[in-house]
Simulated scan of single mutants.
Amino acid sequence: MMAAAHNPIPPPSRLLLLAEARAVWEAGAAVALWPLLQLTPRGDGHPVLVLPGLVASDMSTKLLRHYLQSRGYDTHGWGLGRNLGPRAGIEDGMIAKLESLHADSGRKVSLIGWSLGGVYARLLASTRPDLVRSVVTLGSPFTGSARATNAWRVYEGVSGQSSEDPRRMKHVRPTPKVPTTSIFSRSDGVVAWQCSVEETGPSSENIEVVASHLGLGAHPAVLYALADRLAQPEGAWKPFNRGALGPLVFPDPARPE
């Protein structure tokens, strides 16, 4: 369920793939900076559904969800075990979870998806935009080549499906009709960053961070950006302000390659 082939974008280099080991340091940095991260805006209590990446489970998003819970959000994992691709029952299970959160709270749900989870988030927003408040993806390959990642063989092996998936991608590739943010890193060692670049518009944007792919869900800069994005008032969304923290923390995502 990765992007269909259109551009000859190569996957990240082996050097970047080896550099994914820095994810451990990034998680440690989040713990060390936890007191500062508590200075971000508090949320309004609306539900947030967090979708994990390929072969990952809700355990992988535990720190992220704990942080958002501390900021006042009603945060939930997807509850569908390991993400082994869109196998039988997965899409129905996600829609049921989304509908349940909306029914229980009476409010629209924000979706956060890490890698393949972000592809799911965009699919959900396309399927049920009436239930979705906003979408934030972390290193998700929603455009470009299906093989512009170092994970396509794993995807095909665990899902039993081709990484070329035009039927689903025709719903994933267009920008969702809700406020949408793509957070990506040019030093991503798993997904070619060009496949995570959103077309900017009145309610869509890109936020660049300097992070590994495996560390995106725990990187302090990502947590800061997530808190800022989720705090946007419903119906009054404004683009992310890099402010004094850029360019070292939040480089200009529109700069030339």
Rank of each mutant, 00 (worst) to 15 (best):
A5H: 12
A225Q: 13
F184R: 02
L123S: 06
G28N: 12
E99L: 01
R147V: 09
Q232W: 02
R173Q: 14
L54N: 10
S162E: 11
S163T: 13
G106F: 06
G43H: 03
V55E: 11
T181N: 01
S57V: 07
M2G: 00
A23S: 15
L216R: 06
L123W: 15
L98P: 12
L226V: 03
K108A: 12
A4Y: 06
A56L: 14
F142K: 07
G93P: 13
P233H: 09
G117Y: 06
A29Y: 03
E99P: 01
P220G: 05
F240E: 10
T127K: 14
L80I: 06
A221C: 04
L226I: 05
A151C: 10
R255N: 11
M169Y: 12
A103K: 15
H171P: 00
T75N: 05
H6E: 13
K177H: 11
E208H: 05
H102W: 10
G215E: 10
H66S: 14
V158S: 12
N7T: 14
G113D: 05
A5Y: 06
R173P: 00
M59V: 13
A23P: 02
Y224L: 12
P12I: 04
S163Y: 13
L98A: 07
S13H: 10
S110V: 00
A254G: 11
A227Y: 02
R122C: 03
G81D: 06
S140Q: 05
W237N: 02
E20A: 09
L123V: 02
G139Q: 07
I95D: 09
P35T: 10
G235Q: 10
P129S: 02
D188K: 04
A148G: 15
L116S: 08
I9H: 14
V191G: 01
Q194Y: 02
Q232M: 15
S126I: 00
E91C: 00
Y67Q: 01
S110M: 04
H66K: 11
L39T: 14
T180L: 01
E257H: 11
H66D: 11
